[in-house]
C-alpha cells in the first residue's frame, strides 16, 4: 500500500499523524459524525416523535426506570424525552446546522470579499458599507425578522446564521485578498489580459482559500454556539426537534434546582464535538500553512 514515491497525500497523512492529540481528535470527530448519521438506528427512542414521549416520565434522573420499565441511562428532560436519544439526534442537527451555515456563509463572504478586494473603488466601498450595516445588525433581530416572515425550521435557522456570519468572512477575505492582489502572479495574469472573473476565481481565490478553510472549521463551533444562544432567546429551532444547543438551553433552568443532567450531558457532548473539531483544525492549519514549514 505504502507508495515508494512520497505523494502529497501520504505526506499530509504522515504529518497529521505526528500529533497524537490531533489523531485522538480525529477519532472522536469520526465517532461523533457516525453517531450523528446513525442516530435514527442506534437511539433507544425517537425523541422527535411526540407519540413516543410521555410527560409522566419527565425529569427522571440518570439510570431511573420509566413506569413501563425502561431505563433512561442519562435521564429525561421536562417532556419525558430520553436524554441519550436526544443527544444523538441533537448532534445530528447541531452538526448539520453548523456545517451548512458555515459553508454558505463562507461561500457568500468569499465572493463578496474577493470582488471588493479585486475591483476596489466604489464596488469595494459599497460592499464594505453593506458589511458594516450587517455587522451592526444584532443576530437576534435578524432571527426574529426571519421567524416572523418565514416561520420556524432548521432551514430558517441556517439562513439566519448565514445572514449573520457572511459579513465577517467578507471582511476577512478582503483583507487577505488585498495582500494577495499586490503579488506578481496577479499582476502577471492581468498583464496577460485574462478575463476579470478568470483572474479572480482561477488565481486570487485558490491562493486565499487554504487558510480560510481552517478558519471555517473553527467557525463551525461558533455557529453551533450561536444557534444555542438563539434557542436560549426563544428564536431557535422548533422545540419538538431539539439540537444540542436547544437541549442545553431547555435544561439551563434546571441548573439551580439540582436537575443538572438535563443540560450537563448535552453540554459535555457539545464540548467534545467542538474540541474534536478544533484539535483537527489546529493540526490542519499548521500543516497547510506554508510559512510554518521548516
Amino acid at each position: 500500500m505504502a507508495p515508494k514515491v512520497e505523494g502529497p497525500w501520504a505526506r499530509f497523512r504522515a504529518e497529521f499523524a505526528e500529533s497524537r492529540l490531533a489523531m485522538a481528535g480525529l477519532l472522536v470527530l469520526l465517532a461523533i459524525l457516525a453517531i450523528g448519521i446513525l442516530a435514527p438506528v442506534i437511539s433507544p427512542q425517537n425523541p422527535y416523535d411526540l407519540a413516543q414521549l410521555d410527560v409522566m416520565d419527565s425529569k427522571l434522573a440518570p439510570g431511573e426506570k420509566s413506569a413501563a420499565g425502561r431505563t433512561y441511562w442519562l435521564g429525561t428532560d421536562d417532556q419525558g424525552r430520553d436524554m441519550l436519544s436526544g443527544i444523538f439526534y441533537g448532534l445530528r442537527i447541531s452538526l448539520g446546522v453548523g456545517i451548512a451555515s458555515t459553508v454558505f456563509a463562507l461561500a457568500i463572504g468569499l465572493v463578496f470579499g474577493l470582488v471588493a478586494a479585486y475591483f476596489g473603488g466604489w464596488v469595494d466601498t459599497l460592499i464594505m458599507r453593506i458589511v458594516d450595516i450587517q455587522l451592526s445588525f444584532p443576530a437576534i433581530l435578524i432571527a426574529l425578522i426571519l421567524l416572523a416572515v418565514l416561520g420556524q425550521g432548521v432551514d430558517k435557522i441556517v439562513i439566519a446564521l448565514v445572514t449573520v456570519q457572511w459579513a465577517y468572512y467578507a471582511r476577512t477575505v478582503r483583507s487577505s485578498a488585498l495582500v494577495e492582489r499586490q503579488k506578481e502572479y496577479v499582476e502577471a495574469a492581468r498583464v496577460l489580459a485574462l478575463g476579470q472573473a478568470r483572474v479572480v476565481f482561477r488565481h486570487l481565490l485558490p491562493n486565499c482559500l487554504p487558510p480560510l478553510i481552517v478558519v471555517a472549521t473553527v467557525q463551525v463551533a461558533h455557529a453551533i454556539a450561536l444557534e444555542a444562544t438563539l434557542s436560549f432567546l426563544g428564536l431557535g429551532l422548533p422545540i419538538t426537534e431539539p439540537s444540542l444547543g436547544l437541549l442545553i438551553s431547555n435544561g439551563f433552568q434546571y441548573l439551580l434546582s439540582g436537575k443538572y443532567w438535563i443540560s450537563f450531558y448535552p453540554g459535555v457532548a457539545l464540548l467534545l464535538t467542538i474540541m474534536a473539531i478544533n484539535l483537527v483544525a489546529d493540526q490542519l492549519r499548521d500543516i497547510l500553512n506554508p510559512r510554518l514549514r521548516k
Binding site: A221, H222, F252, L271, T273, I274, N278
Partner: peptide, 11 residues
C-alpha cells in the same frame, strides 16, 4: 481556550 468558545455564554 477551546472551553472559551464551545460553551454557550448563558450557561
Amino acid at each position: 481556550s477551546i472551553l472559551g468558545f464551545s460553551l454557550p455564554t448563558f450557561w
